[in-house]
Write a protein that binds this DNA or RNA. Sequence first.
DNA 1: GGCTTCACCGACCGGCTGGTCGGTCGGTAC
DNA 2: GTACCGACCGACCAGCCGGTCGGTGAAGCC
Lengths: 203, 203
Amino acid sequence: MAESDERSAITIGRILDAARALFAARGYPEVTTDEIARAARVTKGGLYHHFPSKQRVYVAMLLADLEAKRRLFAAAVASHGTCRERLARLTGAFLALPEDESAMLRLVRRDVNFFQGEDRTRLVRAYQRALPEQVEAIVRDGMAEGELAPGNPRLVSWAFVGLVQVMIGDYAVRELGEGEARLEYVLRLFFEGAVALPAGVGR
Amino acid sequence: MAESDERSAITIGRILDAARALFAARGYPEVTTDEIARAARVTKGGLYHHFPSKQRVYVAMLLADLEAKRRLFAAAVASHGTCRERLARLTGAFLALPEDESAMLRLVRRDVNFFQGEDRTRLVRAYQRALPEQVEAIVRDGMAEGELAPGNPRLVSWAFVGLVQVMIGDYAVRELGEGEARLEYVLRLFFEGAVALPAGVGR
DNA sequence: GGCTTCACCGACCGGCTGGTCGGTCGGTAC
DNA sequence: GTACCGACCGACCAGCCGGTCGGTGAAGCC
């Protein structure tokens, strides 16, 4: 029985790994269950033995990934220092994600609207826990300490996430490179605004 | 012959209108060609008489819509005043779009990655012309006038678009309402940054 | 050593959907 | 009035894809 469970866990892991790679590359509708099964070295019957539907495979894969992201980012939030330092650490971790990892976060943001009911709710919660809520915790501290002007911390956090999202776009990478420049850029823009953005940054 | 052309134009218009409503509500894969034809009061045969594929219907509809948006926003760019005033006018026009209109812009951003080749290129260009390039024109003037710190105008424009995108999210609307508050909020955040964001804005 | 359990197999199904094609009909040219 | 053209029709097709189901073999149980 123990061996059976372990075997299942391994197979499920293989299915989720295969699903992640395929969905990240081509999106939900373009990937077939046959492909997932083949990539996971299982037949379709085997896949449906562990999951009741294609959608559940997708959701399970996203939830697992978001939980991993949450743990990764949590380290930055827990670290001490000023609001700016902590945000820099969190954002640095985000910007350092390899392409296929950040693709997962894009998938969630894009596809949440297609799901309904419990699946949707769980996805939204997992995403919020992984990213916006952690930014919000830092922003809230920043406001309490007077480092940031008082305001609605959640809205400010979402604005920050919006800015960071731009920095993972093709153009920003091409213009500022993969390194620290994007981090500097987004932090200055967020804290001091476009009026004060010093010359020389971003070209 | 002239009557024939006119008749075609009317039918094509009906098809594009029907496609817009359906795609905006449910997204590309969830809409069938039968539905589009039915909503346009044409048979599927008639639809395929005017368009070679479902994708072409979608792309044609998006291109038409983006061109309309470009014209709409162009008025704000052409207006005179400070950089901030012009950005306010452009953003105001954007935020005032009804739900189904702004849905089109979301569709483009979401689905561009699925297309390839010429269709993709044309979509990207049309989107850039409709929104980011117009912001960029204003930003560029602002930098030249010293209203904004010098920098890479395109990158700054995209950052601005990123911020505005947050403001059309559900949470921002719920928190700040449909009115001018969101406009004020995003402009202050963009120009002066989160440090200077005055108390009382956004709760 | 029979019996159950369970992971997994793989052929199969059914319906959905993008796309086709032969045909109709009203208008236009001459 | 006849030949033609192009818009449009609607029945049909083919293949894809999510999901099913009867079966198999290995591991544990008694």
